[in-house]
Design a protein around this nucleic acid. Structure first.
Lengths: 245, 245, 245, 245
DNA sequence: AATGAATGAGAATTCATTCAT
DNA sequence: GATGAATGAATTCTCATTCAT
């Protein structure tokens, strides 16, 4: 007789200081499966799932992970509470899906904005513009990721690492091309760029938005210029501080 | 965008029937008063308050703000649950006191480590060393501050602004001294440095610690070198890229 | 740094087909400890705990384990919902405590009623009278124990085994005294007596009560007589079927 | 005693807005009708119904009534969730059908095993063998019936009464034949036998199975012997305690 | 006949805060 | 000053049942 009960109940556990590592069979953004049936979603299911993710983005961005509740998400999405659990295992699980989703999209936004650059500095400027534009439109990215440390550390790391990976590859290519200082450690530089962009975005987009009430859809040009001057110096190479040479 | 949250209800204050939220003479780190009596604390009281703050640092650092509970803090501090409310108004209030306290101490640690520097780059290196040393010893700084956004946004801003203020002043002085690129916007540069230091510290101290299980008490020298090379280039001035001159 | 979070969270797990084995350090009826603080209860605490147990007996007896809810128990006990968790870990845990408690008391009631018997048959009659009287007063015993199989199998077994243990010892003593058939297997006989008493009690006390609406406080004499005739024959020995010899 | 439960709400029927609880021509085991169409089932429908009942037996036996869910039953049966409601009104209704079904089959198993007995004691031994063999193969019988008290009390009573009826008739016949003690109350004796068999089966088949992991397909002979010795004495008559004659 | 997405009432449990001792 | 029992609002998650396809 095979056991009827599930092998090792993966269901949520109320009082769990450190959240469990995300299931490796976790639905990805591209090929989500129903946690209820374990089967791929129908078209109708995919639409409902997307509405939930969008609602989660709004609600998490406004209230943060902890103040947000599943009821609020489902109300915002216009579905019943129970419907949530047809698409996500738990509050944490939609959180993780959301971070992955935002990460996919911000990287998309960045690479689109970098296309056509003829040197690394132009590429950087484009990348940051893409990043900031996305930030302006999707404040959830910041707010949610910065909370992620205690909600799902692996997901937070994944988010940063994916972006840094792209940066590192770009910097290495630029070094090979002699486009930037070849003695720079590309990985450390990538983390530096990531952090620098994060705080500049926070300070000059999110806080600006909160202060004025109106949402700037991009960063103030003089800030971007100053920032690029900083980065240009940091990366070195032929484009640097031309006037000073 | 319509507000998702109900009426006003600023942050995490579940059921607060009678007393208004006014902060009666906001206790500072230096001159704390009892929220119960409204009078300055006795010497014994000060000691209990400090034990609670230290316990909060440990507990918040390990569990995060939300997973932490007042009971855990008081148990860790070795006092009774009710005692907590003789010293702090609420969970949020000890959180804010803790952030302020950590902020005071990290800036102290930074300025001590900068003393004696003969130029801006040396000063920066010292400052970051102080910052990273503090980070290694007090991981709560990161974990708590990054959660602060939804717990007490003003406190989070205060934390960053205080540090950036110091940076900005230092950079302006260095510009006056001709020590660094005088065309750089000192405020934007200060935010860049802050962000850069934050992510490098997170990546190369906290994550390293988590991965190895053992806590490095400082950042790996080659990372600091690489980072300083990046910063040196960014700030420009006589010390930069000597070979290029 | 010692870990702040508990070693292995013993807290309830929603979807758990087979309940976990009861904690060996489980509070006993005599020396209960608070699951919240882990310390022995104060006098006030003991009183509250007893009120909860009594309420649980009433509510479980009327509604059964599953239909009963903790809110109903606490309402019946006149305490707030949260108070429950100062005394019991979970619904299952008060259930187990209740079964143990009822078991202690039914055995007490049985041995009191057996005292003074001069032979085994008299002792059996007394024991069953005690058992049925307790049953009439505490219908929870039946209803709850029969449900226990899926709630806490160990507790159900413990209940039966404790009673059977007493029976077995009594039968063995009676065999040594030549009071009953010495070739009888005392353990099998003990289980037989247990089962026989259970169904007779169910049929002639509980169902009678339900049918008439009024609660008989004891079993009908002719049923007890018939039952004792059956048992007398089963146990054999000098008292058996005297007229037939 | 005041009622704890709200108004009427007989048993486990959570939210039932419109349709009255009347059972439209209570489907029997032999002549089931569709609760959807109200018409007798086709051959295909009968097969699906049987698969659902078999699945219910497995699932209820392993998890118990409350822990079991309709989804699990339908998954086990290999049909879609909605299909369930084409054959049964509710969870309670398949439960009742299952108990009736098991009752039919266990009585069948008992009377087959009694056929050919030449006296009452032989008949009893046969009957119990049939009962225990069925128990070993269909543990659901015990587990489900013992839970039935709070799910469907009438069904539980029906189950016991049907078996006891058979016993009573058999005992009366044996008394007329002078085969057993004629002064015994046959109904009380029948309930005694029923209870005795129930607990012996539970202890020596079900618990043995749980302890060893392997399922004994019958009761240990020495236990059956001891039990029959007990019963033989109880029923009295010519076959009893030969040595004493 | 069969399907399975959607529903929403209900349950257990947590924890910041109060207040009588 | 200190204590810790009591409170109850709020949260996450489950699952029997419905109904459009």
């Amino acid at each position: 007789m095979t056991s009827i009960s599930e092998p090792a109940q993966p269901t949520g556990d109320p009082a769990q200081p450190t959240p469990p590592t995300s299931d490796p069979a976790q639905p990805t953004a591209d090929d989500p499966i129903s946690p209820a049936t374990g089967r791929p979603l129908t078209k109708r299911g995919l639409a409902t799932r997307r509405r939930l993710l969008e609602a989660a983005e709004d609600v998490f961005a406004e209230l943060g992970y902890h103040e947000a509740s599943i009821v609020k998400v489902t109300e915002h999405a216009g579905v019943a509470l129970g419907t949530f659990y047809l698409y996500f295992d738990s509050k944490q699980s939609i959180f993780e899906a959301l971070v992955i989703d935002l990460n996919d999209r911000v990287r998309q936004s960045m690479s689109e904005a970098m296309a056509g650059a003829t040197n690394r500095i132009e590429a950087e400027r484009g990348g940051f513009e893409g990043f900031f534009r996305f930030t302006a439109k999707h404040p959830a990215l910041y707010r949610v990721v910065r909370e992620a440390e205690f909600v799902s550390p692996e997901t937070m790391r994944l988010h940063y690492e994916r972006i840094v990976e792209g940066y590192t590859a770009g910097l290495q290519a630029a070094q090979s091309a002699g486009d930037i200082d070849t003695t720079l450690d590309p990985e450390v530089a990538a983390w530096a760029l990531m952090g620098l962009g994060e705080l500049i975005g926070m300070r000059y987009i999110l806080w600006e938005r909160d202060a004025s009430g109106t949402a700037p859809d991009r960063i103030a040009p003089h800030v971007l210029d100053a920032m690029m001057q900083f980065i240009g110096g940091a990366l070195g190479g032929p484009h640097t501080r031309k006037g000073a040479e």
